[in-house]
Computed example of a mutant assay.
Amino acid sequence: MDEKKNILKLDVSIFENNGKKDFAKIIKNNKAKTIKAFDFFMDGIKNEAADSKETRRILANYIVKQKITKEEELHLKLRVYDILKKLGIGVPFMLIPGATLLIPFILKAAEKKGIDLYPSNFKGKVNNNEKLTN
């Protein structure tokens, strides 16, 4: 997997060709940080997709058998909690024009106040069951 990450090349020509030379320069100067952030985001998306697939499986199993295990119940609770976090941040910002620019500041302010707004798949590698029991 590390081999794939090293293959990633940073092509900023699309920004340079569209008159965003300053932005392209910032990206080039922060190449390592940019690639690390992109890899982190893609890992989160991949984990999100796997969790969604597992959630669909659990729900289908529940519909058919009317029974799920405690572990599956914890998984569903975490997924619902994550969905509510996403809705809580996303809906107001979709309704207010230009408010999406404030999302990073809101996330940082919430973090300082001890409020967790990040979905579980975009955090460090912590066991999901630990988060529910804490």
Rank of each mutant, 00 (worst) to 15 (best):
G124L: 06
I26E: 14
I35T: 03
V64W: 08
T34I: 14
T100P: 01
A49I: 15
N121D: 04
E48C: 05
N129T: 04
L87K: 11
I26K: 05
K46W: 13
G90P: 01
L117F: 05
N129V: 02
T133K: 10
F15S: 00
G124N: 06
T34F: 04
G88Y: 04
D2W: 11
D39T: 08
M42E: 14
D116N: 11
G19E: 01
E54N: 10
G19M: 02
A60G: 10
N134E: 11
K125Q: 10
I96S: 09
N17Q: 12
N129F: 02
G90R: 05
K108W: 13
L59H: 02
L95K: 11
K77A: 07
N17D: 10
F41N: 12
Y62Q: 04
D2V: 09
G124H: 06
N29I: 11
A24S: 14
F105I: 11
N134Q: 13
R79K: 14
K67C: 13
Y81G: 02
A32D: 15
N47K: 01
E72H: 05
L78T: 06
I83W: 08
L10K: 08
S120G: 07
I68P: 00
D11P: 02
F15M: 08
N30S: 13
E130G: 03
A24N: 04
M1N: 11
D116T: 12
F38T: 10
T34G: 03
D51Y: 03
M42T: 15
H75C: 02
G90N: 10
L101D: 14
L78I: 15
E111Q: 10
D11T: 07
L74K: 03
N17H: 09
D39I: 08
I27A: 01
A32R: 09
D39E: 10
K53W: 11
L102Y: 09
N17W: 07
G44M: 02
I26H: 07
Y118T: 02
V80E: 08
K4V: 13
L10M: 13
D82Q: 03
A60V: 14
V80L: 14
P92L: 08
R56F: 15
K70M: 06
Y118N: 03
M42D: 13
